[in-house]
Simulated assay, not measured.
Amino acid sequence: MTRIYDRLIAEHGMQGVSYSVVRRYVADRKPKIRVEAGRGPVNVFFPQTHRPGEEAEVDFGEVTINLRGEPVTCMLFALRLSFSGKAVHRIFASGGTEAFLEGHVHAFSTLGGVPAGKIRYDNLRAAVAQVLGFSRQRVETIRWTAFRSHFSVDAFYCQPGLQGAHEKGGVEGQIGWFRRNHLVPIPSLNYP
């Protein structure tokens, strides 16, 4: 960018042009030049389609409550249906195996059944004992395997790290929405 700016001044005498104007013009024009030369990016778009009751997403998110005047961090379990966006939430003291399984049972009973297709998951310790390389193959925990078999849950595990961050964005946004709309201001509980 600096070379282009310097050449405009040296070769074309454009003293009145600022560097930021040149930078904006080049940023706008560069992709168009690449397309005209046949080297531009190919715009490929695959729209997501979901059938009713077919797919869902599950995740945990941190929430804060005041318990007897002290702030306590708890875990919010969320199961969100992909087609309708309907979600079921439950707050637990931790995000352990018991909370993970109980959250599913609560969601299935609230929704009136189990999603017929895949349910998308992170690589939660409650479900995944080991991630095998960068594939989608996982070694599941014994309790999760038994639970999945009982309820006929078809698990789909997202890629670890940033590669899989977009694969279950609906439930990620749902947790933030729930936190902002139901837990602000921070609720106070005064149990003995």
Rank of each mutant, 00 (worst) to 15 (best):
V88C: 05
F92H: 06
A99D: 03
G69S: 05
C74H: 08
A93T: 10
R80I: 14
L79D: 02
S84C: 06
G95N: 09
F92G: 02
E70T: 15
M75P: 00
G85H: 05
P71S: 10
A93R: 13
G96E: 12
L81I: 09
A78G: 11
L81R: 09
L79M: 11
G69A: 04
L79K: 01
E98D: 14
R90E: 11
G85M: 02
V88D: 00
S94C: 09
P71K: 12
V72M: 10
M75G: 07
S82F: 04
C74W: 07
K86S: 01
G95T: 03
R80W: 06
M75A: 14
A93L: 12
K86T: 12
R90G: 00
F100M: 07
M75W: 12
H89T: 15
F100N: 01
H89N: 12
M75Y: 15
E70N: 10
G69F: 10
I91R: 11
T73I: 14
G95L: 01
R90F: 06
F77M: 01
I91E: 09
L81H: 03
L76P: 05
P71R: 13
M75S: 15
G69H: 09
F83Y: 11
H89V: 14
F92I: 04
G95F: 00
E70M: 11
G95S: 08
F92Q: 00
F92E: 03
R80K: 14
G85P: 01
F100I: 01
L81F: 03
M75N: 12
I91D: 02
C74E: 11
F77E: 02
G69M: 05
E98T: 15
V88K: 01
G96T: 11
K86V: 15
S84T: 14
E98P: 02
L79Q: 07
K86L: 08
E98N: 13
A78K: 05
L81D: 06
A99K: 05
I91Q: 08
E98Y: 13
G96M: 02
F100S: 04
A99V: 04
G95K: 04
L76F: 03
R80G: 04
A87C: 08
F77Y: 09
S94V: 08
V88N: 01
R80Y: 07
T97K: 05
S94D: 15
E70S: 10
R90N: 10
R80H: 08
T73P: 00
F92Y: 15
A78F: 06
V72Y: 14
S82A: 12
H89G: 03
F83N: 03
R90P: 02
F100V: 02
V88F: 00
P71I: 12
A93V: 08
T97P: 03
S94I: 03
P71C: 08
F77C: 00
S84Q: 06
L76A: 06
F92P: 00
E70Y: 13
K86M: 08
F92D: 00
R80D: 07
G95V: 01
A87D: 03
E98M: 13
F100A: 07
R90I: 07
G95D: 10
G69C: 05
L81K: 06
F83A: 05
R90L: 09
S82L: 07
P71H: 09
T73C: 09
R90Q: 13
T97H: 03
T73Y: 07
A78N: 12
I91F: 06
S94P: 00
E70D: 13
M75R: 14
K86F: 13
S82H: 05
A87S: 13
V72E: 13
K86N: 07
A78C: 15
P71A: 11
H89I: 12
